[in-house]
Simulated assay, not measured.
Amino acid sequence: MGEPMTDQNEKPARRVLVVDTATSAVVTGVALVSAAGTVTTLAERIVADQRRHAEVLTTLMRDGLSEAGVAGTDLDAVVVGTGPGPFTGLRVGMATGTAYADALGIPAYGVCTLDAIDAAQPVGEPGPRLVLTDARRREVYWAVYDAGRRIAGPDVNAPDALVGELAGTELVTAVGETRFTERFGFVGADLVTPTVASLASIAAEQVLAARPAEPLAPLYLRRPDAVELKDQKRKSLLPAAPND
């Protein structure tokens, strides 16, 4: 393709590949970031299949680029959701996005997935908004936002423990699956994810400035399941204490 579209100041817009696998869904697509920071979604794929992130991601990326009419060599950056998220799923998106950027010689910018979920919501009533995602092991990842600014988190807790921790916060709403938001008195949804536009919008300033990319830092917030299981097995092999 030719040069990216330009705004009234004749500054080129930036084409961005977006990838996020921190939730139960794979989110990927292509966005156009104008010189003014406005984000337009050229293609978007959101598929809920947390057990097949690695299998479906590259296919969805290819389909998104094709729909947008953008070749890999036309891209200016890759934006990757860095979680928090379960170890295996999150690692798939981060590794794939980083490898794609490296292969093309373009920067990859990391975005907190919870920030992007908040940014995807309507502005709504002023006040603290809780964003929740499934952390498995009967826990949730969470953060609290006010007017688009994160004021608490991200962290991981059991839902009931989080209710106690946020007891003094007058939440205006909670965003997440209903099984989690109902603990706080709010109706949620069956699936909550960031969008291509919300992920790209958070990284827009970096993308437009073409800032040098730094190594992406995943927000695991806890050790991966494999490590936990290994520790449990090690403990089971230790001799019992006298009082056990």
Rank of each mutant, 00 (worst) to 15 (best):
G29R: 05
T40F: 03
A116Y: 07
A35C: 05
D118F: 02
Y141W: 12
A95F: 06
A147S: 15
Y109D: 01
R14M: 12
G83T: 04
P128F: 09
V79A: 11
V79R: 08
W142A: 03
G81L: 04
G105N: 11
T113N: 12
F87V: 09
V39M: 08
S34Q: 10
P126Y: 10
A143N: 00
L104H: 06
R91M: 13
D63M: 05
P154L: 15
G148T: 09
A120S: 15
G110W: 03
V16K: 09
G110Y: 05
A35Q: 04
S66P: 00
D115M: 13
A101K: 04
A13R: 05
D134L: 08
S34I: 02
V18S: 09
A13C: 11
P84G: 09
C112V: 05
T41C: 15
D76C: 02
A116H: 08
A120G: 07
T21F: 03
A147R: 14
L60M: 15
A108Y: 13
G81P: 06
T21I: 08
S34A: 15
V16C: 09
Y141M: 06
E67F: 01
A158W: 06
T28R: 09
D76E: 02
G97C: 08
A143K: 05
V56T: 07
V92N: 04
D115F: 14
A103K: 02
A13M: 06
V92Q: 04
A161W: 02
A116C: 10
Q50Y: 14
A22G: 08
A71S: 15
L17E: 07
E55I: 00
Y100Q: 11
T73L: 02
E139V: 13
E139R: 15
A120W: 07
G85V: 02
A43E: 08
I151V: 15
L75T: 03
I46E: 02
P159W: 10
D160T: 12
